[in-house]
Amino acid sequence: MGIKIDGLLCTACMACELACGYHRDDAFALLSSCIVPYRGREKKNYLGVMLKEEDSLVAARPEGIEINRIGEEQDPDKEADASAKPMLLRESCDLCEDLDDGPLCIRVCPVDAISVE
């Protein structure tokens, strides 16, 4: 079971990031979330969502999902990109296992871009 994200639906509202931060810190903060909408290319309006799982980093891009196994070498011919090694020291997604009603990020996403599969 894991989190699935539709990068095209996302509106970069950051609700999931804040909810995940709350799940970690019991307060509102953004620094420890393992789900992060990528907002760094504002002028180009290119955005997606990154998720850190136990052994992989998922980049839900508008053009599709990319999964990088943590620790596996990247394809050297591929252009370096923002999803290759981010957030390595953050805790991985635990699917909010301590919560009866399931993952917070799913419940908070206003456009249903996140689901479990």
Binding site: V36, Y38, Q74, A84, K85, P86, M87, L89
Partner: peptide, 25 residues
């Protein structure tokens, strides 16, 4: 450092590999 954490770099120093996340530590 938080911005660097999102970048695909790492460095080898001596026999050890460092990635940007360690800056934050």
């Amino acid at each position: 450092a938080a911005g660097l954490e999102m970048q695909p770099v790492q460095w080898t120093i001596g026999n050890k590999v460092y990635d940007p996340g360690k800056i934050r530590v």
